[in-house]
Design a protein around this nucleic acid. Structure first.
Lengths: 190, 190
DNA sequence: ACCTGAACACCGTTCAAGT
DNA sequence: ACCTGAACACCGTTCAAGT
């Protein structure tokens, strides 16, 4: 990539990150281009779709979550590891505004720029869930798809301003449904 | 209302209902006006915002849910009554595409055309929840706001095509978290 | 190679002109 | 009273023209 192109690419990403982590889910691509001081065409060649831009923004976050899952697989308490990871996954997606719906759409669309990242996230969760289930810490009638859907729903809740005050509590309630009663004890019900 | 105005009003509603119950969440107001054979201005005077149109479409459904709650309050099993009503509430909102986000926004916005309907829905759920809690059938650490958020999350799930296959199962899982274990037994975990 | 910005087909919304 | 449809300021996207 030419150096001026690289500079534009990086600057667009910086501006987009500032806008989307600042709650500006409704920022248009033109807003981003204008704020970055580039033409509309420049933004569209670097990032052909909004999803492509999100993918570039979120790639490292998704990789972090996969690594985090690997680390948590060495945690003694498999149920606790699953819950910790869930909390972090929800917080990660929530740190950007307006990413949940594209993420969910991407899990079923192999052509989406976000597809690979979503599949990785689901895989990481599936591993932690399977381990918790093998130890009897999590209910056996769930799979990685259920977990992905649950993360999406919780992250979506946290994106809706009127529901934000309830998001943490509902997280605890849903966790109590995932963990088997013999293990969670006061953690989720407390 | 003049008879030609009344005719336009009704026809717009019919067309909008056909589009929104047919999965066309992305139908623009102009699409609806065109399909109804009226000018853009006509649609906007009858329904100043998209929310106003949704409110006119959903009003009877919300009223039905409030009546249904009253009927279910006379059901013997308070836990079962709550679960039945939850299932119907989710199905009702799900029967129209793209209504969940406006509904959630409206619960906190007293100026929204949808506000009253949403508050009624929340009240109906609160009554059923309180009765189930009084009988020890539902966990005590929840209120009507939590229930409204839960319905929203479940309805949102059912609106996302990739998550649809999981929606019913997640409904059962979440129900198992609401009902106290002494009561639900095999219902939710089965 | 890469960038710019006008252009296109859309959107929600408004408003002068008609009946 | 009510309706129409052009107009406005937006949007995502494309593409000829520049450097």
């Amino acid at each position: 990539m030419r150096s001026d192109a690289k500079k534009n690419y990086d600057h667009i990403l910086t501006v987009a990150r500032d806008l989307l982590t600042g709650g500006g889910a409704d920022a248009s691509l033109r807003d981003i281009a204008r704020k970055a001081g580039v033409g509309d065409g420049t933004l569209h060649r670097h990032f052909p779709t909004r999803e492509a831009l999100l993918e570039a923004l979120l790639r490292t976050n998704f990789e972090d979550m996969a690594e985090r899952a690997s680390a948590l697989e060495r945690e003694e308490d498999a149920g606790r590891a699953l819950v910790l990871w869930l909390k972090e996954a929800v917080a990660m997606t929530h740190s950007y505004s307006g990413v949940i719906a594209p993420m969910v759409a991407a899990i079923a669309d192999e052509d989406s720029a976000l597809h690979g990242s979503c599949v990785s996230l689901r895989s990481a969760g599936t591993r932690l869930l399977a381990r918790a289930q093998a130890e009897g810490a999590a209910r056996p009638d769930m799979d990685g798809n259920d977990l992905f859907a649950l993360i999406s729903a919780l992250a979506w809740l946290a994106e809706q301003p009127p529901l934000v005050p309830r998001a943490d509590h509902l997280f605890d309630i849903m966790v109590s449904a995932i963990l088997t009663d013999s293990r969670d004890g006061g953690v989720a019900r407390g």
